[in-house]
């Protein structure tokens, strides 16, 4: 990278102008003043920056409204295919491991919604490999804000809303199919399960990205835990072999995304015999798992040396 490349085009320093920023003169829109004093790792400036970066991306993507609508609908339908599969299967089979169509749809919607939101938020982590290869991650390091928030804000594609809507529709259908005696604690468990699920999937994206600091290439094996994880949590846990179940309980805590909260909300017995109190523990597990992910991320950033191009 030569010095010339990082200098903005045009006069430097630019002439002060009231329309600077967002005016098509090659300069980014000015960031909130507080950011100038941003200290790496501090929460508040990171968050302000995150919001500003996301806003800029969203408005950029909304410029192509037709393209956005087509893609969002495409995402909705593409993920809806799996749900159609589920419905087809239940035309032929009465239940799976004692769960009816509505109950499985509940798992499916809960997992899909949580995954959809994390997918919307975490595109930047998915693209980290490219940033490392192109050397643009160096730029991230030179800025006076945390690397985590910058990468998190790196690629927010609003077309992924389609996936989120799909999760909500499925969850809504499921709730209308199964008789749930709703109580305040159940609503709280449902809401916290969605948030916890988002955090757990986010932590997986982060750990997957942190590994790329060593491997450079995105390990497609991350897909096993992200997309594969979404598929896994769509069905009741007892159908899986014991080794797989243990792994996704104690190592990667996907069991907390949908299965355990669903047991509580649908008042189902757990043939696995896990302590019932775990059904309420999704948020705690999610926070711990995210801390582990942040630690991996910090290790990765420290290990990063650039690709030398």
């Amino acid at each position: 990278m030569s010095l010339r490349d990082w200098r903005p085009r045009g006069p430097y320093p630019p002439a002060p102008s009231p329309v600077r920023g967002g005016g098509g003169d090659g300069w980014p829109a000015p960031l909130p003043r507080a950011l100038g004093r941003g200290v790496p790792g501090r929460v508040l400036p990171d968050f302000t920056l995150y919001a500003a970066l996301v806003r800029a991306q969203v408005s950029a993507q909304l410029q192509y409204r037709g393209s956005f609508v087509v893609q969002a609908v495409g995402q909705f339908l593409a993920t809806f295919v799996d749900f159609i599969t589920l419905v087809f299967l239940f035309q032929r089979f009465p239940s799976i491991a004692g769960w009816t169509l509505g109950e499985v749809a509940f798992l499916y919607g809960l997992g899909g919604l949580a995954f959809g939101i994390s997918d919307l938020l975490c595109g930047g982590f998915d693209g980290l490999s490219k940033m490392i290869r192109l050397g643009t991650f160096d730029r991230v390091l030179t800025r006076p804000v945390g690397t985590f928030a910058q990468v998190l804000a790196g690629d927010v594609q609003i077309r992924r809303l389609g996936r989120i809507v799909q999760g909500m529709v499925t969850l809504g259908l499921a709730v209308s199919w199964v008789e749930v005696a709703w109580t305040a604690p159940k609503v709280a468990v449902l809401v916290s399960a969605v948030v916890a699920g988002v955090v757990i999937f986010t932590a997986i994206w982060v750990i997957g990205a942190a590994i790329t600091f060593w491997t450079v290439e995105t390990s497609e094996v991350t897909n096993v835990f992200t997309y594969g994880g979404e598929a896994l949590v769509s069905y009741p846990m007892p159908i899986y072999a014991e080794g797989l179940r243990r792994f996704f309980t104690f190592v990667v805590p996907l069991v907390f995304v949908s299965y355990l909260p669903a047991l509580y909300i649908l008042e189902k017995a757990d043939p696995l015999g896990l302590p019932p109190v775990l059904q309420l523990c999704s948020p705690i597990v999610a926070v711990v798992f995210l801390l582990v992910a942040r630690f991996c991320w910090a290790l990765g950033v420290r290990h990063y040396q650039g690709t030398g191009s």
Binding site: L89, R92, F93, P94, S95, I96, A97, S219, E220, V221, N223, V224, Y227, G228, A231, L232, Y235, P238, I239, Y240, A241, L244
Partner: peptide
């Protein structure tokens, strides 16, 4: 290689689904 691993993993998930379903019929 990683594609084959992902394919195989999904194969496992789908296989367990079918095993559980075929217990009813």
């Amino acid at each position: 290689l990683s594609g084959a691993i992902t394919n195989t993993f999904f194969g496992f998930l789908r296989a367990y689904t079918f095993i559980a379903l075929f217990q009813t019929r």
